[in-house]
Simulated scan of single mutants.
Amino acid sequence: MPATRLAVGGLDPWFVAFGRAAVAGLLAITYLAFVRAPRPTRRQVTRLAIVALGIVVGFPLFTSLALTTQTAAHGAVVIAGLPMATAVWAVARAGERPGRGFWLASGAGFVAVLGFVATTGAVSGGLELADLFLLIAIVLCGLGYAEGGALARELGGARTVCWALVVSMPVTVPVALVTVDFSNAGSSSWFGFAYVTVISMFLGFFAWYAGLARGGVAKVGQVQLAQPILNLTWSAFLLHEPVGWLTVAAAAAVLTCVVWTQRSRS
């Protein structure tokens, strides 16, 4: 979220969303050629298209649009619902059946995150269009995580995200070329764009989908509960903003809930 906020500060949000996917697609082609990955089957291509809809197009686009008018801290409030959305899609698409203890732990972690961001002043004002964008991003991203995590059991984490990027290139490349505008882009915008391209859109998914495939989409997805707190922690590290005792307490509560979800039965 902070990197996306930096990127849209000087670049068109549509370019940030589709440009990062287009460049990551070129990296994906290089990787697939290097490892000589076999082509996915027709059924797998259909599932890869669902993954691409969620993580390549949906989440990057709607978060970029939202962060043109909202802060990364505000976005963290709404994005806190992503672990729960991922768990719901894991039931619908990945065939997982978490037990009652899991849902209690997930709900407790969700409440802890919301309480933390509320008490730190990140919540203000009423519902805005940016919040709607973030809610759409959550639904689509949860779908992409669940479908990709299940598909990674067949293809592996790295090849799943790489093929999803390649499948989406007929859309991402033309949109990126149409929306490109560097006139207002500064060094901070390019830093943010480089991060969301290489890390968020490419390398980060290698580990993420591998983890979802091995540990289960619903359970591993709950690690995302730490995202809002990590947002503020990185802000403190990079921007020298103070981190109080409340941050430490909330982090402990959330991590406790994450451990609880990992120990629950399916």
Rank of each mutant, 00 (worst) to 15 (best):
G244W: 08
A33D: 09
A66Q: 03
L114Y: 01
L203D: 01
A7F: 08
A92D: 04
L225E: 02
V111Y: 01
A90W: 00
Y195T: 07
G9F: 13
L67N: 04
A66W: 03
V166G: 03
P83I: 02
E241T: 14
V111S: 01
A72M: 07
A207W: 11
Y31R: 01
G107T: 01
G192C: 09
F102D: 02
P40V: 09
D12T: 07
A158G: 10
T46W: 13
R5T: 10
M201S: 14
A213W: 05
A21P: 04
F34L: 13
T71W: 07
L26P: 01
T41Y: 05
P98A: 06
A85I: 14
V57G: 02
V243F: 09
Y31L: 15
A122S: 13
T120P: 05
L143E: 12
L255I: 15
G54Y: 05
A164Y: 03
V180C: 07
Y145A: 12
P170H: 08
A21K: 01
E96M: 13
L246D: 09
E154I: 12
A150W: 11
A112F: 02
V77M: 12
S183I: 08
F59D: 14
T119C: 08
V180K: 00
V196E: 06
A137Y: 12
A33R: 08
G75S: 05
G81H: 02
L132T: 05
H240L: 12
L135R: 02
L11G: 11
Q227P: 00
A3R: 00
I138W: 01
V166F: 07
A3Y: 05
A17E: 04
L143A: 10
A251G: 11
V217P: 06
S168Y: 02
A236C: 14
I79P: 00
L61K: 03
V258W: 06
P170I: 06
A218K: 14
A33Y: 04
E147I: 08
P38C: 07
A21V: 02
R47E: 10
V161R: 10
F62P: 05
Q224Y: 07
A213E: 07
E147V: 15
W163F: 10
A252D: 02
L82G: 01
L129Y: 11
R214E: 13
A85G: 02
V77E: 09
G54F: 12
I50E: 09
T261E: 07
T120I: 13
P40S: 08
E96K: 12
H240W: 12
D131T: 05
L230T: 13
A150D: 11
H240N: 15
V91G: 00
I55F: 10
G19I: 11
R36C: 15
R39C: 12
V180N: 01
T86L: 05
L32I: 04
A94Y: 10
L143K: 09
L246W: 04
